[in-house]
Simulated scan of single mutants.
Amino acid sequence: MSVITVETPHGPSRLTVHPAPDAHAVLLLGHGAGGGIGAFDLVALAEELPARGITVVLHEQPWRVAGKRIGPRPPTLDEGWRPALQALADGYPGVPLWVGGRSAGARVACRCFDERQAGVICLAFPLHPPGKPESSRIAELAGVTGPVLVVQGERDPFGSPDDVRIAAREAGGAQPTIVGVPGTHSFNRGAATRAVTAVAEFMA
């Protein structure tokens, strides 16, 4: 494991690299708005996927590196993410670069997706604020022009797997692969283990 500092317009962000011995893919993952890279699912992916040939890189936003407790608005998050994308595109030329994250991190990855990336892994995609299904963020998910996996808690108040499936169908375009796991928005260890299997199979 190694740690790399990446400069952004809003201060340094941090990349924690969990390398695969002979990587056939790289997966860059961002954290949520209320937590860091210690979330069960992010840790599980970083521990398990390198043995399957996938280098996992966990990205800490500048606000988190600076010790702040509340994340900024989406445009600032995107500006904190793009330099990390560039660093990995430069550092792993010719290796498929997958992106994603947990909750708000998944939204950032969707908004910033471009032709350099192979696909998106969304862990607990926050389809809408709890109790406000009219405030849908499906446009971010539907805007990805590549393969998308959504791993969603069956009782997630930000949107269940069925909620995401219905919203994606109504939005049209390419449909994401949706995998339901037990629990709510914050995955427990069991849900994190299920997420590892789903991600490994999707990226295979």
Results as ranks from 00 to 15, higher is better:
Val3Ser: 15
Ile4Ala: 12
Ile4Tyr: 06
Glu7Asp: 14
Thr8Trp: 07
Thr8Asn: 10
Ser13Gly: 15
Thr16Asn: 03
Thr16Arg: 04
Pro21Gln: 08
Ala23Ile: 00
Leu28Ile: 03
Leu29Thr: 04
Gly30Trp: 00
Ala33Phe: 02
Gly35Pro: 00
Ile37Val: 13
Leu42Asn: 01
Ala44Glu: 08
Leu45Asn: 12
Ala46Gln: 12
Glu48Ala: 15
Arg52Gln: 15
Val57Arg: 00
Gln61Val: 02
Pro62Trp: 05
Ala66Tyr: 09
Ala66Ser: 11
Gly67Ile: 13
Ile70His: 14
Pro75Gln: 05
Leu77Asp: 06
Glu79Thr: 08
Gly80Met: 08
Arg82Gly: 05
Ala84Trp: 02
Gln86Val: 12
Ala87Ser: 06
Leu88Gly: 00
Ala89Asn: 06
Gly94Ala: 11
Val95Leu: 01
Leu97Thr: 01
Val99Tyr: 03
Gly100Pro: 02
Gly100Phe: 12
Ser103Leu: 09
Ala104Leu: 12
Arg107Lys: 11
Arg107Ile: 12
Val108Ala: 12
Arg111Glu: 09
Cys112Met: 14
Gly119His: 06
Ile121His: 02
Leu123Glu: 01
Pro126Thr: 10
His128Trp: 12
Pro129Asp: 14
Pro129Ser: 13
Lys132Phe: 09
Ser135Gln: 14
Leu141Ser: 03
Ala142Ile: 07
Ala142Cys: 06
Ala142Gly: 15
Ala142Arg: 07
Thr145Met: 09
Val150Glu: 07
Asp156Asn: 06
Asp156Ser: 03
Gly159Trp: 02
Asp162Leu: 09
Val164His: 04
Val164Thr: 04
Arg165Ser: 12
Glu170His: 13
Ala174Ser: 14
Val181Lys: 07
His185Phe: 15
Ser186Leu: 10
Ser186Phe: 07
Phe187Trp: 13
Gly190Glu: 13
Ala191Asn: 12
Ala191Ser: 14
Val196Tyr: 10
Val196Asp: 01
Thr197Lys: 15
Thr197Val: 15
Met203Val: 05
Ala204Trp: 02
Ala204Pro: 05
